[in-house]
Design a protein around this nucleic acid. Sequence first.
DNA 1: GTTCCGCATGAATCGATAG
DNA 2: ACTATCGATTCATGCGGAA
Lengths: 282, 282
Amino acid sequence: MTKELPTNTILCGDCQKLLRDFPSDCIDLIVTSPPYVECRKNTYGGIHPDKYVDWFLPKSEQFLRVLKPAGTFILNIKEKVIRGQRHTYVINLILEMKRQGWLWTEEFIWHKKNCYPGKWPNRFRDAWERCLQFNKKKKFKMYQEEVMIPMGDWAKTRLRKLSATDKQRDESKVQSGFGKNISNWIGRDKVYPTNVLLLATECGNKNHSAAFPRSLPEWFIRLFTEKHDVVLDPFVGSGTTAVAAKGLERAYIGIDNNPEYCDMARAKLKDIAVQGSFKWKV
Amino acid sequence: MTKELPTNTILCGDCQKLLRDFPSDCIDLIVTSPPYVECRKNTYGGIHPDKYVDWFLPKSEQFLRVLKPAGTFILNIKEKVIRGQRHTYVINLILEMKRQGWLWTEEFIWHKKNCYPGKWPNRFRDAWERCLQFNKKKKFKMYQEEVMIPMGDWAKTRLRKLSATDKQRDESKVQSGFGKNISNWIGRDKVYPTNVLLLATECGNKNHSAAFPRSLPEWFIRLFTEKHDVVLDPFVGSGTTAVAAKGLERAYIGIDNNPEYCDMARAKLKDIAVQGSFKWKV
DNA sequence: GTTCCGCATGAATCGATAG
DNA sequence: ACTATCGATTCATGCGGAA
C-alpha cells in the first residue's frame, strides 16, 4: 500500500493516528499552537500540566517522521501559572523532544502587543509566548528575504542626505572611506528581522478559543517555505494556519479532533483569496 | 560569632565563599547577570556550557539562604547557540534550582532594541534575554505602582512624533519609558507594564563590557524593594546593579571575583548621586 | 539652544582554515 | 574526527562635534 498525502484539506480526527497514514518526509513546515493546559476544558479538551509531555511526545514522534529533512517545526506554546509558579512542562518538553531526535534550533518570542488584560497582586500581564523552532537537520530551508522589515530611522534620513549631495555631483565621497560604508546601504530600505516578533493578537475571534493571529503562521510560512510547499497544522483549530498557507499559495493540511472546528476551518478556507504576493503595509 | 552584613560596599572574591559569612534572610533582592558561557574567557573566566549548572548551583544555594523569605531573585541569562542549537543549560538550571527549593515565579523577557548585528544563513539576530524570577515563598514583596508606565496624552503625542516605520515595527514604544524618564510623568495617566521589557543595551562604554543597561536592574529594584532595602549582586562586574541601587537609595552589596571590576565599580559608585527627591519637568 | 550627522561599539554566530 | 582561531556579516544607539 502506498501512502498518500492529502493536501489542501481539513482532516477530522486525532493527529497522532491520522499521521500514521502519511508517508515519511513529506511535509515542509509544521506550524501549530496545541491545546493549552487545562484551559477551555469544555471546548478543546484540556490536558493536565503534569501529563502534558507524555501526551505530546507520541504526536511529535509522528511530526518528526513526516517532516522533510530540511523542514521545520514551529511550536507556539506558553507555560501556565500553576499555584503561583510557571509550570515546567514546556521546558521538560524541549528536553524530551531533543531526546526524541529533534534539534532545538531557536526560540522566537512572540511579543503580544495587546495582551490579555487584568491585574494581579504578584504578577504582571503576560505579553509573550514561545515559538520554539525544531529541526531534523542542522541544514534547513530558510528564505530570510521574505520577511525583511523596513529599516529604522537611522539610515533613512542619512540616505536621503546622501542621495541629495552625493549621487549627482560629489562622487568623491562615495570613493573615500566615508562613502564606502554608506554605499553598502544604498538601495536598501529593509533589514532582516530579529527573533522577537511584535504582533497583535486578534480579538474578534469569539468562536475559537485559541487566539492565534494569522500573521504569526504567515510569518513562519514565508520564512520557511516556498510556494506550493506543504504546510501542516496538526491542531488546526479554527483554521488560521491553513488560511494563512492558502493565502500564500502553499498547500495546506489541517487536522483537528473537533468536528465543529473542522467545519469552521473549511468554511473560512472557502472565502480565502490567494494573495499573489505579500506586501508590507506602508 | 555573629554574622554581620556589610552594606554599601563592593566585595572582591568568590560570592560562593563570601556569602557564607552573611547571616541568613538578610537580602531583599538579588539581581544579577552571571558570567555567560565561554564568552570573555580572558576577562571573566568563561564557564563551559556543560558545566554551567554544576558551577551555578552551590552559589544559588547561598543566594537562597541569604535572601529574605519575602525577597526575590532576578537572574538575567540567555543560552548560547552551540553547534547550531540553543544549549539547554538554562532550562536545566531552572529545573535544578526548583529542586534546590526555589519557586520559579515568572520569566520576564528583556527585548533588546539594539541587539548585536550580524547575518547568518539559518538564524536571525538574537534580540532577547531571559530575566528569570525566583522566590522562596509564594508571597513576596512587590510594588507594582513604582514601575507604572505613562499612557494617555503622553503616549499619543509621543506616538505622533514617531516615524511611520517605527509605528509599523514597534507600536509598543510606549513601553520604553522605563527608568529615569518615568519620574517625569508621575501624576499622569499610567498603566501597569507587562512581563516584556523593551530596553536598549548600552553601547559606547569603552573600558569594559557593560553587561546590562542600568535601567534593567533599576526596574526590578523599584518593583521589588523599598528605600533602604538591601540589594545584592553577586556578579556585580562593573557595578551597574550597585549604581542603580545607590541611585534609588537602596543599600547595595556587590561582589565580584575580578579586582579590576571591583575597582571600576567603586569608582563609578563614587560619582553616583542619590536621587533624593525627584524633580519633574513641567 | 536645537538639530543633525559621523563614528565607534557591542554578553553574536557561521564557515573556513589550521593544528 | 575534534577543537581553536579568524574574518565576514550586520544595525541601533549614544556620544561628540558641527551646522
